[in-house]
Design a protein around this nucleic acid. Structure first.
Lengths: 192, 192
DNA sequence: GCACAGGTCTTGACAGTGTCAAGTTGAAGG
DNA sequence: CCTTCAACTTGACACTGTCAAGACCTGTGC
């Protein structure tokens, strides 16, 4: 199955090999030739399926945003608790580091790829769902962004990023989810 | 002055050329040879001064953390307001995008470079200064991290990152500092 | 004045990279 | 069985980081 000329699902195999490689040394160090070697195919096979390196990374980012949206939706559906969505955000970043790192590195991607845009929109929607509607401004019209949602998003995204780049003390790194909840206890989001 | 064999301060010139290049296409796309060309020297000159590519990026990150610490210290010293420190954090990220991006990409750096470590510690100290002491735990001993400081740090860092990766709506991008203050109005950090 | 020492920078080479054009293989449909 | 066409390979190109060797300049000791 794996050593046939027509691989069956080489595209999938390449993505998996790439995710593995990214997990070891980050998305910017990814080498198409190394991915090809890992999958046991010729050095130009990846380019055939994804166009170029950015194409492969874009496919990974899109798949990542889809899984991400799944995780966030599931958290909200099962708990109805916005804090749990935040916890899911951080959990996803830690458990799927390779995907997460790729997703938020737009300079490596084809930003306007339709698959990527669709999956990204799904994630965004899933995240904001629990934040509630923004309060209307002084003129009675709703503002063009939701400060509560943006604040919560910034908080969890910053927490995940700083955690993954090794900026937090040991006690946080040991149990990041507990630390996040501890932090949340010390803050209030004001809706009105 | 510039076309002498002994450049005078090539090291400085290379850093500046590199910062320029990073500003155009990010730290992971940096090419030593392109930097050399920009500075008008031979292709191997950068390696002579910085050892390797990671060495150049490390020098930039260290300089960045020093400037960053300056900015944060100045904000606290002149206002005594923790929120202003947060605003300075975001302002620095936006005004010094090339430095900021490099600073938080440890996989591209020599993480244990003494200059980098010193400058990083300075920044960390400057940031936490306004957060106050953490409250003691149930056993009376102070916890090994400060939830309020970590929360604020996560918030501003996430805000800056998401802003710079183009994840925010136009209204936020137009005046990020105002948006940050708006967000802060909707949250409370609880010290006790 | 002058040799010499040592840091500064250059030159040339090497293996590895992404990408492209051309070729080869094999499976599927008439 | 033969054609068609996508899947994949092969070979080449320009570019990359790094290293060893050399050329060049400047300061120091005499």
């Amino acid at each position: 199955m794996t050593d046939r000329y027509h691989h069956g699902d080489l595209r999938r195999a390449l993505v998996e090999a790439a995710v593995e490689a990214i997990g070891e040394s980050g998305p910017s160090a990814l080498s198409l030739r190394a991915v090809a070697k890992r999958a046991g195919v010729s050095h130009a096979a990846p380019a055939h399926h994804f166009g170029d390196k950015a194409g492969l990374l874009t496919a990974i980012a899109a798949e990542g945003f889809d899984r991400f949206a799944d995780a966030l939706e599931r958290a909200w559906d099962t708990t109805g608790d916005f804090l749990q969505v935040g916890a899911a955000y951080v959990r996803f970043a830690i458990d799927n580091q390779a995907y997460f790192e790729t997703m938020f590195r737009p300079e490596l991607l084809h930003k306007s790829d339709p698959d990527l845009e669709r999956a990204e929109a799904r994630s965004r929607a899933a995240l904001v769902r629990g934040a509630g509607e923004p309060e209307p401004g002084p003129d009675g019209k709703p503002p063009d962004y939701n400060p509560t949602a943006l604040g919560a998003w910034s908080l969890v995204h910053g927490f995940a990023s700083l955690h993954m780049t090794g900026n937090f003390p040991q006690a946080v790194t040991d149990d990041p989810e507990a630390a996040l909840k501890d932090i949340a206890k010390h803050m209030r989001f004001i809706q009105g």
